[in-house]
Write a protein that binds this DNA or RNA. Structure first.
Lengths: 131, 131
DNA sequence: TGTCAGGTTGACGTTTACGTCAACGTCAGG
DNA sequence: CCTGACGTTGACGTAAACGTCAACCTGACA
């Protein structure tokens, strides 16, 4: 007998706890079309894919993506399996734009981090100059 | 005679145009204590330092810093010139925390960018598999 | 001397991303 | 059977970051 694989599903409360958000947040994301967990009767049932998707969403939020931007990206995860050349091409194009945008944000972040370090250096200089 | 240095000052409208924001935004930032331009009578007069500060503010916004986080950082620019050991030390400590936070955001951004590229790769794969 | 562009301060409206509360169903335990 | 912990759907409240509008002043120009 193979060892049973993990539970593989979560309730809203469980997943919210694990991800460090409230159940309200998860329900809101669903209402906004960011996720669509299965249902057991009326209750939400999240699986590994939902969980991965939510991690992606929350990661995006942490560096300033809006929910609509995020919605577009996670939507592309599904669209990338398309079979229509035209659609794949426009998708690819858009992904390029998004990548460029993210790279620009990286630059902004890096510069800000550099400036923060400069201020810290100035502090250290001042400190060594004091008795 | 030395060549005259540039105007060196801006009105709200001029600076807003240059920075790509509205005058309302600049006034709002002032009300929130992020900048304090000089006045000519009642009219705001921004100099190079104000402009640099605003650039810093807007850069921070682009990767998800809130105005209160930004306010704290730009405030430190002024505090770093302090002469009190105790204050410099707490400032340095806080700057370390901020740097750590920014590095965490960098990680989140990098991972998201990597995932976006993976999706793009999947698109390209699908495209080559088609006639 | 109008008038017109651009400045000023309130004051209220709007969007985003949830928080909070009410009213209800459901299932396990005492 | 009843309570308590969890789930459900509305509906309304809220903080942040501005947008919008009114009512006003001011200097330049025909």
């Amino acid at each position: 007998m193979p060892t049973r694989t993990e539970a593989a599903t979560w309730t809203v409360g469980e997943l919210a706890d694990e991800l460090g958000v409230t159940t309200r947040t998860l329900r809101f994301y669903e209402a906004e079309g960011l996720i669509a967990p299965a249902r057991s009767g009326t209750a939400r049932v999240y699986d590994h894919r939902d969980r991965a998707r939510l991690r992606l969403i929350l990661r995006g939020k942490r560096f300033g993506m809006s929910l609509s931007e995020i919605r577009e990206i996670v939507g592309m995860y599904d669209g990338a399996a398309s079979s229509e050349r035209k659609q794949l091409e426009t998708l690819l194009d858009r992904l390029g734009q998004i990548a460029d945008d993210l790279k620009a944000r990286q630059q902004d972040l890096a510069r800000t981090l550099a400036e923060v370090r400069e201020v810290a250096d100035r502090c250290r200089d001042r400190l060594t100059e004091l008795p």
